[in-house]
Design a protein around this nucleic acid. Structure first.
Lengths: 202, 202
DNA sequence: ATATTTGTCAACCAAATGGTTAAACCGAAT
DNA sequence: ATTCGGTTTAACCATTTGGTTGACAAATAT
């Protein structure tokens, strides 16, 4: 019966992921998760004890998916400009596969800021040290203008993440269709990297 | 009794603003709003009929506060570079006064994308046309490199808004204290504008 | 002064919600 | 075939939650 077990448990996790990531912890209903997983509501508690624990399972999974993306910038051996291009180019593909994920992580971290402390103990938790050294080295070698690595990191993340988090607002302000907005995002794959590199290159 | 009335009605709106903006529609409780306004829960329904309507009142108010900020970029007569500097410099002050507001608007718009349509009918709804003309003019006159006004707008907004929306995440990744993070934000008042202008200037 | 409207509150209600329980089910080992 | 373990379900439960009601107070109008 092993196969059956793991199946149900995973079925629940997937259903919970969909519901939690779309509606957040507070907006999600256990019954809706059960319905989506096509199982009895009691199963949720059988496998995960409580809504809180099920949520935490989903959240940790989500963060484990996001972390490698961030590590593309922070802990990767490629040269700075290539790295910026690679990250920018790849991030959009990641978001298409997991549309609600980055916003989900950010939102729930906002509502529970201590949570980041628990995450930091995990291995592969993204750390800035290497990136910092790389930026400082590039400055010393006269490749880029002086800039704090922290600020550059925030800029890279901002330019890539916000356009997806605030899509409905931006689309409304710019007053274009969803399709046109997707095309804008498509262009950004290369444009954003150029925008950043133009700004820092010496 | 006029004074008393407006007082209660406003008291409710303010309490509702605090609770809704911090916890979102789904995470907010009518009782908590009533407690914060120090009135009976029935009063909420007396003045606003339902949670949904009270929420919409708060949301519209929030958007009316955010709109002028956006219009600083889109509909302002100052020259392009000054405009970017002004907006960037002022936005942080706005966020300090209304820490949850931008995120609140973005989140609830995500959960209810049609809402933007209703907002568009309001006067002072930010429109991009003027900014677009300004950018195109600056390109023609050889002041800045070619860039779509939409992309530049998204970049300005992203660099300014995301660092506040994702503060707990970024602070955790950079691994600094809240105070140090605030200092980073303070530097951004001028650095972000330079970053943008450096990138587009010819 | 009295009637009428407006504002406020305590008590109440029905539905929703997270969680529990006890019985049934089912495949595998004895 | 029977027992035994984990799995699944329907029914149930306590609490929370948005919302209502009816009595009462406080203004305002007559």
């Amino acid at each position: 019966m092993k196969a059956k077990v793991e199946n149900t448990e995973l079925e629940i996790l997937n259903a919970a992921k969909e519901v939690f990531q779309e509606k957040g912890m507070a907006g999600s209903r256990m019954q809706e998760i059960a319905d989506k997983a096509r199982i009895n509501k009691s199963m949720l508690h059988y496998y995960y004890r409580s809504k809180q624990l099920l949520f935490e399972a989903v959240f940790k999974n989500a963060f484990r998916l996001l972390a490698p993306q961030l590590n593309r910038v922070l802990n990767d051996d490629t040269e700075l400009f290539d790295k910026i291009r690679n990250f920018t180019n790849n991030y959009i593909s990641f978001v298409i596969q997991h549309p609600y994920l980055p916003n989900f992580v950010i939102q729930e971290l906002n509502k529970n800021p201590d949570f980041i402390g628990k995450l930091r103990t995990e291995k592969d938790f993204p750390r800035i040290e290497k990136f910092k050294a790389q930026v400082e080295d590039a400055i010393t070698r006269g490749i880029i203008k002086p800039i704090r690595a922290e600020q550059l990191f925030i800029n890279i993340i901002s330019l890539n993440i916000l356009p997806f988090i605030a899509a409905p607002l931006l689309q409304g302000l710019i007053n274009i269709t969803e399709k046109e907005y997707r095309e804008l995002m498509e262009s950004r794959k290369t444009e954003v990297a150029d925008f950043i590199i133009n700004s820092i290159r010496l």
